[in-house]
Design a protein around this nucleic acid. Structure first.
Length: 220
DNA sequence: AAAGCTTAAAAAGTTACTTCA
DNA sequence: GTTGAAGTAACTTTTTAAGCT
C-alpha cells in the first residue's frame, strides 16, 4: 500500500490547523503537524570553523526546503541533502541507545530540540535501525563462517582417524597379537565446537529466522 | 469465531548526494 | 581536477500487526 509522505510544502499548509497532539496507535489520524518556524541546525557556543561550515550547509538546505521543497520530482531542482551536525547525531545516538523506536511525543520533542522536522528524526531512526541490523548480520555471518571452518577441520580430523582405525583393524585381523600395542587415538565422540551440547534441532522445531542465530551462537 | 478490509508503523529496498582517499 | 568507494539522508515499496465490520 502506498503511504503518502510528509511533503514540506504540504506541511506548511496543514500546520496551521492541528497541534502536535498525541494520537492513539493504529487509529486513523491526521497528517503529523509540522512546526512553522524554519528548521535551523543546532548553533552552539564556541563553534569552530568546521562546525560553522556544517551549520551553514544545514541552513542552506533548510531554507531551500521551506521555499521550494526538496523532492526531485518538483520543479526540476535536484534533491538536496542535509548532513546532520555532530551534535545532532550525538543526541540522536543517545536516544537510540535508550530506545530504537520513538513515540509521536518523543519524536516531536526530539525534533524540537534538534531544530529538525519530525519526519527527519523518523527517517534517521529508520536508517539507524537498518544500519544496526546490517551490522548484526555481518557479525552473524562472520560467526557462521568461523563455525563452518571449525566443523570442516573437525570433519577432516575424524576422516583421518577413521582411516587410521580401519588400518589398525585390518592389521589386527592379520596379526592378532598386535592388539596389545594399539595406541589410544580414538578420542573424538563429541563435536568440540558444540562442547557436548545437544544439537538445537534435536528437540526444537525448525528455527525461525529470528531464533536461528540465537541457537547458533549458543552452540558454536 | 473466522474472513476480509483498512490503517499506521516498521522493514526492506533504492536513489541521490557528500566526503574522502 | 577526476574517479570510485563508502556512508548516509531521503525516498518508495512491501510487510506486519492491530482494529473494525
Amino acid at each position: 500500500m502506498f503511504m503518502a509522505q510528509e511533503e514540506p510544502g504540504l506541511a506548511l499548509g496543514l500546520s496551521l490547523g492541528s497541534g502536535a497532539g498525541h494520537h492513539h496507535h493504529h487509529l486513523p489520524q491526521p497528517k503529523e503537524a509540522v512546526p512553522l518556524e524554519p528548521y535551523l541546525s543546532l548553533s552552539l557556543a564556541g563553534a569552530g570553523a568546521v562546525k560553522r561550515e556544517e551549520e551553514e550547509r544545514a541552513l542552506i538546505y533548510c531554507s531551500d526546503d521551506l521555499v521550494e521543497g526538496y523532492n526531485s520530482s518538483g520543479g526540476g531542482g535536484s534533491r538536496k541533502k542535509l548532513r546532520l551536525t555532530k551534535d545532532q547525531t550525538a543526541l540522536l545516538e543517545d536516544h537510540f541507545k535508550e530506545q530504537s523506536t520513538l513515540s509521536h511525543k518523543q519524536k516531536a520533542s526530539l525534533a524540537r530540540q534538534l531544530n529538525l522536522r519530525p519526519r527527519q528524526v523518523e527517517v534517521w531512526f529508520q536508517n539507524r535501525r537498518a544500519r544496526t541490523k546490517l551490522k548484526q548480520t555481518e557479525v552473524d555471518c562472520e560467526l557462521l563462517k568461523r563455525c563452518c571452518e571449525t566443523l570442516t577441520e573437525e570433519n577432516r580430523r575424524l576422516h583421518r582417524e577413521l582411516q587410521h582405525l580401519r588400518a589398525l583393524h585390518h592389521h589386527q585381523h592379520h596379526h592378532p597379537a598386535a592388539a596389545f600395542f594399539m595406541p589410544a587415538t580414538a578420542t573424538a565422540s563429541v563435536c568440540p565446537s558444540c562442547n557436548g551440547a545437544p544439537p538445537a534441532h534435536a528437540t526444537d522445531r525448525p528455527a525461525t529466522k529470528r531464533s536461528f542465530f540465537a541457537t547458533k551462537s549458543a552452540a558454536c
